[in-house]
């Protein structure tokens, strides 16, 4: 089962094969759990959101048609579960539609621990957008759809998140 290609694994999951379901869970649980933690959730809440997310995943797996990757599909379901557990507060910011995309600051060579600490100090909304945009490779449109905000808000959140992070690291 561990060597089984993803398409076959999904096909078995659609037939409610328990060992295939467990294998899919085993393959993605850590990535999805890490995503929840990076979005600022407490471990206990992240655990709960992950459990709820996987239940939803397996209940609705028959609707997965393979248009997007399985991870992207599972991630969308998890993000919905997270937003049920935790209200992600998006701080009001200016609508800087294009600014975020045109800013291409070169990153200084930051200390790993300092970056980690600064990241954890970011407001939840900034953390979320930064995580989804850079680490999850989501577009502003996708982020907007998941967090129920406009594309412009997502861009400005990202811009401010980067500014805030830079400020925190300079202190």
């Amino acid at each position: 089962m561990e060597q089984l290609p993803e398409e076959e694994l999904i096909a078995l999951c659609k037939k409610f094969d328990r060992s295939a379901q467990f294998e899919l869970y085993r393959r993605y649980k850590d990535s999805l759990f890490t995503l929840a933690i990076r979005m600022g959730m407490e471990p206990a809440d992240a655990e709960w959101a992950l459990q709820d997310g996987f239940i939803q995943i397996f209940k609705s797996i028959s609707s997965f048609n393979g248009d997007s990757g399985v991870y992207a599909w599972m991630r969308t379901i998890l993000l919905r579960s997270i937003s049920k557990t935790k209200k992600i507060l998006i701080q009001p910011t200016d609508q800087l539609d294009c600014l975020a995309e045109t800013v291409g600051e070169s990153l200084p060579d930051w200390d790993k621990e300092a970056l980690q600490l600064a990241f954890e100090q970011l407001p939840p909304g900034y953390r979320t957008v930064l995580t989804l945009y850079y680490l999850e490779d989501m577009t502003h449109r996708e982020i907007g759809a998941v967090l129920k905000i406009s594309e412009g808000t997502s861009k400005s959140q990202l811009y401010h998140a980067k500014q805030k992070l830079t400020t925190l690291l300079k202190v």
Binding site: D30, I37, Q116, Y134, D137, K162
Partner: peptide
């Protein structure tokens, strides 16, 4: 390039978690 740079930096710095 910006995306790649930030992604690499963040991936290197932020810990992963075991569920």
């Amino acid at each position: 390039l910006d995306r790649l740079e930030w992604r690499t930096k963040l991936e290197k710095s932020l810990p992963t978690h075991t569920a």
